[in-house]
C-alpha cells in the first residue's frame, strides 16, 4: 500500500483555467454564428482566420522557445476570437493575421505568457490595428438601440460583436453564476455607465450597445488585467463606466469608447491594485 503525503487541502472545487476559457469561447462562438447570419459568411472567415493565426503564432513561439504547448488551455483561441469580434466584416483578411500575431507574440508572450500580460492582448492588438489602418478597420455603421428586438439581434451593427447583446448578457450571467468571472466588475461597470450617462444627459439608446456588454462581461473582467483586490475591482468597475461615457460623449462613438476604456483601465489597474491592498482581519501588531 502506497499512501500519498501532501499538504492540505486534499480536495478541489473543480474550476480550472480550461473550463473558464472554453466557456467564454463557447459564448463567443454563438455570437460569431449570429454575426454570420447578419453579415454573411465573410464574418465567419474573419473569425476563422483570426483564431487560426493566433493559435499558429502561439504554437510557433512555444516550439521555438522550447516551452510546453498550451494550446489546449484555450487562451490563444480566445484572443483570436475576441480580436475577430472587434473587427468589421468588411475588413481585409490579412489584417486579422497581423493583429493576431501582434496580440499573441508581442502582447502575450513577450510579457511572459498566460497570466503575465499587462494589457488584454486582443484589445491591445485592436488598438494597434486601429492606429495603423484606421480606415480599413473602421466600421461603417454605429448601432442605435431603437427597440427591444435590437437587444436580441441588431441589424445595424458595424462590428461582429455587436450583433446580439442578449447572447452576451445570458452568457455573462452564466459565467458569474458558475463563478468563472467575478461579479464585482460587471455590476459596477454597468451601474456606473448608466448613472454617468443619466448624469450628463446622454440618451441610453446610444450607450447600450453589444460592444458594451462584451466589455462588461468578457473584456473588463478578464482576470489577468484587472486588479486582484476586492476594493480595487470596485474602483476598476466604476472607472470603466466613467471612461466609457466620457469617451463616448466626446467622440459620439460608444462602441470604440468601450475598447479604449478597457485599454486605459488595464493601464491603471496595477496602480489601483497597489493602493488597495487589504488589511488582514487578524493583523499581527508589531
Amino acid at each position: 500500500m502506497k499512501l500519498t503525503v501532501s499538504h492540505p487541502a486534499h480536495i478541489r472545487e473543480g474550476v480550472t483555467i480550461n473550463k473558464i476559457m472554453w466557456s467564454k469561447i463557447a459564448i463567443l462562438l454563438v455570437l460569431s454564428l449570429i454575426s454570420a447570419v447578419v453579415f454573411g459568411p465573410k464574418a465567419l472567415a474573419v473569425v476563422l482566420i483570426s483564431v487560426l493565426a493566433a493559435v499558429l503564432t502561439e504554437a510557433g513561439i512555444q516550439k521555438l522557445t522550447k516551452q510546453e504547448l498550451t494550446i489546449k488551455d484555450g487562451d490563444a483561441v480566445l484572443i483570436g476570437l475576441i480580436m475577430a469580434l472587434l473587427l468589421p466584416p468588411t475588413v481585409d483578411l490579412w489584417i486579422p493575421v497581423v493583429g493576431a500575431f501582434f496580440a499573441v507574440a508581442l502582447v502575450k508572450h513577450a510579457f511572459g505568457g498566460l497570466g503575465s500580460t499587462l494589457f488584454n492582448p486582443a484589445i491591445a492588438a485592436w488598438v494597434f490595428m486601429n492606429m495603423s489602418w484606421g480606415a480599413l478597420t473602421g466600421s461603417e455603421s454605429i448601432p442605435y438601440l431603437s427597440g427591444y428586438t435590437d437587444l436580441f439581434i441588431e441589424f445595424g451593427s458595424g462590428r461582429l460583436a455587436e450583433v446580439s447583446s442578449m447572447v452576451l448578457i445570458i452568457g455573462g450571467l452564466y459565467l458569474i453564476y458558475k463563478k468563472y468571472i467575478d461579479w464585482r466588475i460587471p455590476t459596477l461597470y454597468l451601474i456606473s455607465t448608466i448613472v454617468m450617462a443619466l448624469l450628463i444627459g446622454e440618451e441610453l439608446s446610444y450607450v447600450i450597445t453589444g460592444m458594451l456588454f462584451l466589455g462588461i462581461f468578457i473584456l473588463a473582467p478578464d482576470p489577468t488585467t484587472s486588479p486582484i483586490t476586492k476594493k480595487g475591482r470596485f474602483i476598476y468597475g466604476i472607472l470603466c463606466g466613467i471612461l466609457t461615457v466620457v469617451y463616448g460623449y466626446l467622440t459620439y462613438d460608444y462602441v470604440v469608447a468601450v475598447l479604449f476604456t478597457v485599454f486605459f483601465a488595464n493601464a491603471v489597474a496595477p496602480f489601483i491594485e497597489k493602493n488597495t491592498f487589504p488589511k488582514p482581519v487578524n493583523e499581527v501588531s508589531a
Binding site: G115, P223, P278
Partner: peptide
Amino acid sequence: EVLCESPGPCIHCARCVDVCPVNILPGR
C-alpha cells in the same frame, strides 16, 4: 481521488482573494 495535477501559471483571477477568511492576497 488523490490530486496530482502539476501547477500552472497564476492568472490573477483573484478567486483566492475572494475566499480568504483573513483578507490577505494568497496568490500574490
